[in-house]
Design a protein around this nucleic acid. Structure first.
Length: 256
DNA sequence: AAAGCAACCAACCGCTTTCTG
DNA sequence: CCAGAAAGCGGTTGGTTGCTT
């Protein structure tokens, strides 16, 4: 099958959007929604391809977009989430309300990657990335320490270049790397409410995930996950569950 | 003042995934 | 189940801005 490029049609405009185009797009979507992106520009009277309209809306015009610089907390969350999810920018963005995947990707490439490399240069070669993210995690953060950081499944970098290559490789193969691994979430005791356990039990009954107590009670527990082979959905499930449980609230954090 | 450079970010490209008939 | 269309996604590019020399 040969697919025509989306902007192949002559006469379709490319490049930066004007405020007039923005207004047309905003008012059209406010009135009619965006059920069909490809048809939208034609109906709205825009000389753009649907793809361009969609991108403009998602990355810039949506009313729930949070403009302005990223806070330290948001940057920390990105670092932690990237360690866990790799370059899955949309998955990271889904956990940072008001931020887009494009924005997060840009921040990562322009700021955070350098910050990590710089950090790595100033610490010992055996310093793990989990230690690094622990430093950034603070009470109240939306982030939490990645399960993968406890699993000792990736080689530790010995230089900044090595670190870069390791993180890139982890991003590419991250899901495979943690399949069928037993992971201890041992950073802290979780404070857990009833809804957590009902959802966890529900997942367990389905046979997709397994959760074991290591220590603790029903409302404060140290947990161990036995991750399934088909981990893609499972990780998101557990991730959301742990966020709800406030797993990021680590009262005592290492300093360096 | 101007040239060079780096940083930033909006937008594009092309591949993959999902949806639909 | 299959093919084509549409949407989603991540990588990359190129224009703009601001800083340095």
């Amino acid at each position: 099958m040969v697919r025509a490029p989306c902007c192949e049609k002559m006469g379709l405009k490319k490049g930066p959007w004007t405020t007039e185009e923005d207004q047309i797009l905003i008012s059209y979507i406010q009135n009619y929604g965006h059920g069909n992106w490809r048809a939208l520009p034609k109906h709205a009277g825009l000389l753009r391809c649907g793809k361009s309209c969609r991108l403009r809306w998602i990355n810039y015009l949506r009313p729930d977009i949070k403009r302005g610089n990223f806070t330290r907390e948001e940057e920390d969350a990105i670092i932690n989430l990237h360690e866990m999810l790799g370059n899955r920018w949309s998955a990271i963005a889904a956990r940072l309300p008001g931020r887009t995947d494009n924005e997060i990707k840009n921040v990562w490439h322009t700021h955070l990657k350098k910050r990590l490399l710089k950090h790595n240069n100033t610490t010992s070669p055996t310093c793990s990335t989990s230690n690094l993210t622990s430093r950034y995690a603070e009470p109240g953060d939306v982030n939490f320490e990645s399960p993968t950081s406890h699993a000792s499944m990736s080689p530790q970098p010995s230089s900044s270049d090595d670190f870069s290559s390791v993180t890139e490789a982890s991003a590419a193969t991250g899901q495979n790397m943690i399949k069928d691994e037993k992971i201890e979430l041992d950073a802290t005791f979780l404070e857990i409410d009833d809804s957590f356990w009902s959802e966890a039990l529900s997942a367990d009954n389905s046979g997709d995930n397994q959760l074991e107590f290591l220590e603790g009670t029903n409302d404060q527990a140290q947990l161990q996950l036995l991750l399934p082979s088909n981990i893609d959905d499972g990780m998101d499930f557990w991730y959301d569950l742990f966020i709800k449980a406030g797993y990021g609230d680590t009262p005592e954090l290492p300093e360096f």
